[in-house]
Nucleic acid binder design. Structure first.
Lengths: 230, 230
DNA sequence: CCAAACATACCCACTAATGGGTATAAGACA
DNA sequence: TGTCTTATACCCATTAGTGGGTATGTTTGG
């Protein structure tokens, strides 16, 4: 997948090269050290892109972005503590000129749509070619949007659609993922640092939205919707 | 997590340093270019470990390993085409001196146990500190085993369990299908005209054979093995 | 005949999960 | 201000499921 502007891969309107005086200052946010290493390795030495910092959760990302004022934040979604989307939303309000690119392994509609709703200008899958990340950074920096090919078809829908009752919230998706992984409510509560009663309530809310309450049904839904990959 | 021998992190019995004449020749197998980059970046320049090749699926891994005869294969599990475990099993039979280390984002018991059954000598989680990978490679090369802390507690089970007990009987498959469809044990008993106690016993037997007892795990297995199609 | 596999079924003790609700706090928006 | 959404948390009653076992009957193959 060659990726890049107009090449079937990403969606990225060609626009004027804006702010091309210096490198694109980029902050990486991911709780997986391997991914941080991988991205840094890919972007090292590339003309025009400079990694100015890395963070491993949302709160750290916010601190760093406030201080360093990057052009682009390359943000993972699921992280312990504050997740990437919440951090995106907060930073987007504080710094409207800052651009946010989601780097995720999740290719489901829900993840993509939620990212859009939180103000991301792009969504790149982790399992794509490494060159795609640079292309996405450049496209978003140039004022465009960038979506990996495998998720770009989700964009046929009206992008201003409000969160429908069928869309699981970020938290609900987190709970659903752990359910589908076989965790008990008790374990989920411990992992997310909430009460087991809260887990049960999230399950009820999930049931209301997708119609399944059995663990088998939830598991199937998680797989079907891409929240969990086999 | 400093990782390494006996440091609470991994489990790795100290043994004699075997074959220490040259670097530990390692092949990386992962369909995520970012992960390959990240691992290579971590291991580059490290004394004693040499990456001699990379592959992005099981078949490619087998070709490469047959040609290059590495000491260690660092293998992801879920990949398109032939998965990492099947490749591990095949290579382990062909080259008994070769060691296999699973690099995975999955921290569930099922994944760890299955990896053991396929002959892996270690299991490292992708979200751990990058230094852990080198530690794991060294431990396994030295004749030991290495498991990331978060999965090491799964090792209480008998590791010599053979895969031949894995085949489900017809009845067990019937029960499994209905479990995966979301039926309660009571409903399954009614549908199959048996006692609920019998259903429970079948579930126990299924658990013994495939290692899952949670409904989510059973559901996933049913989908993976084709008993239920989405 | 004996052993193994399979299907069936039971006991016990305990934990887990579901369905019916209720409630509060915070944030966003009209 | 009022409403909606989200996240959190609780109560109650009940059913469901798990892990430790034990056992019997039937069939098949050596």
């Amino acid at each position: 997948m060659s990726g890049g502007t107009g090449n079937g891969g990403g969606i990225s309107p060609s626009g004027p090269e804006s702010g091309a005086e210096g490198p694109i200052r980029t902050i990486l946010v991911d709780d997986h050290p391997l991914v941080l290493e991988g991205v840094q390795s890919c972007l090292d030495g590339l003309d025009g892109i400079e990694i100015v910092g890395t963070a491993s959760d949302g709160a750290e990302a916010i601190d760093l972005a406030d201080r360093l004022m990057p052009d682009i934040m390359l943000v993972d979604v699921n992280m312990p503590g504050m997740n990437g989307l919440d951090a995106t939303e907060i930073l987007r309000e504080r710094h409207p000129e800052m651009k946010f690119l989601i780097l995720s392994m999740h290719d489901s509609r829900e993840y993509v749509e939620t990212a859009l709703e939180y103000g991301a200008s792009g969504y790149v899958l982790k399992d794509g070619p490494t060159a795609e990340i640079a292309a996405a950074i450049r496209a978003v920096h140039a004022g465009g949007v960038y979506f990996s090919a495998r998720v770009s078809h989700y964009l046929r829908h009206d992008r201003t659609r409000s969160r429908s009752t069928q869309t699981l919230t970020t938290r609900e998706q987190s709970v659903l993922l752990l359910v589908a992984k076989g965790r008990s409510n008790k374990e989920i509560a411990r992992e997310l640092d909430i009460s087991i009663r809260t887990v049960e309530t999230h399950r009820k809310n999930i049931k209301r939205k997708i119609g399944h309450s059995s663990t088998a049904g939830l598991t199937r839904y998680a797989i079907e919707s891409g929240i969990l990959s086999l």
